[in-house]
């Protein structure tokens, strides 16, 4: 079974601090990490491989330094890695990003499963996974929290819903987006880290993808950022003090209208 797992390198939010004067993000010294949701996709991909055999290819689109994320993916059990990187991709919104990744997946060719994290922690759109499956015209099951059964014939999975979950059956190839509940990602292994060190990710540019240039990057993106602004910071309000009984009384009084 050949599995492709799409990952994204994002700024590590645990490092993110806010400049108290300008109220903007301090990005200096912020480490880049694999999108936390993609870690679950990598783990699930490796588990499918361990169950069914085959190989896992990690795929990312990003600047050259995104290679670090691919190496980490290899240390976590992925076998191969593909970096899609070109200035022509700059300015891609989710439409162009999913177009580009779909083109890369077509070029990888032989695949049974595409796995994605449910969303990226920087963009939070949850649009790229479904976008890829639409471009590839393959079935998708989003927000899956469990793979009950998987084989060349197809898969049975649990899709998380607001109220519980749906059990869904799908033929392969299929795209899945995974939620945190699906697994606990393993730690990297030393042997994996050594493999990662010597691994040479495949690098493709726009020309390699045989894609429509008009569908790439800013040009291929229907949406534009009109402006970026800092929201008025939420101001701290009133501090209440006194004994537990006193503050409780005061607070209950203040909130009375909201709770009845």
């Amino acid at each position: 079974m050949n599995i492709i797992v799409c990952i994204k390198q994002v700024p590590n939010t645990t490092d993110v601090r806010i400049d108290p004067v300008t109220n903007t993000l301090i990005r200096d010294g912020v480490e880049s990490v694999i999108n936390p949701f993609d870690a679950y996709a990598i783990e699930e991909a490796v588990r499918i491989k361990e169950r069914c055999g085959g190989k896992v290819t990690a795929l990312t689109m990003g600047p050259p330094q995104a290679e670090t994320a691919l190496r980490e993916a290899i240390s976590l059990g992925c076998d191969e890695a593909v970096l899609v990187s070109d200035r022509k991709f700059a300015g891609s919104d989710t439409w162009a990003t999913s177009y580009t990744l779909a083109a890369a997946i077509r070029k990888i060719g032989d695949f049974d499963v595409v796995l994605c994290g449910k969303q990226a922690s920087d963009g939070d759109t949850a649009q790229v996974g479904p976008g890829i499956s639409a471009h590839l015209d393959i079935p998708q099951v989003t927000y899956i929290k469990k793979i009950l059964q998987i084989s060349a014939q197809g898969a049975r999975v649990e899709r998380m819903t607001e109220e519980g979950y749906d059990e869904v059956e799908t033929p392969l190839p299929c795209l899945f987006t995974v939620v945190k509940e699906i697994n606990t990602p393993r730690m990297p292994s030393l042997k994996g880290m050594m493999r990662a060190k010597s691994a040479k990710p495949v690098k493709w540019t726009a020309a390699d993808l045989e894609a429509d240039p008009a569908a790439l990057g800013l040009e291929g993106s229907p949406t534009r950022v009109l402006k970026i602004f800092t929201p008025v910071p939420r101001k701290g309000g009133e501090m209440l003090s006194g004994s537990a009984a006193d503050v409780s009384k005061e607070l209950a009084e203040l909130l009375k209208d909201m709770v009845v």
Partner: peptide, 11 residues
């Protein structure tokens, strides 16, 4: 189990 999977027992 985590230490085992990470190959640390064999360093």
């Amino acid at each position: 189990k985590i230490l085992a999977d990470s190959d640390l027992f064999g360093v």
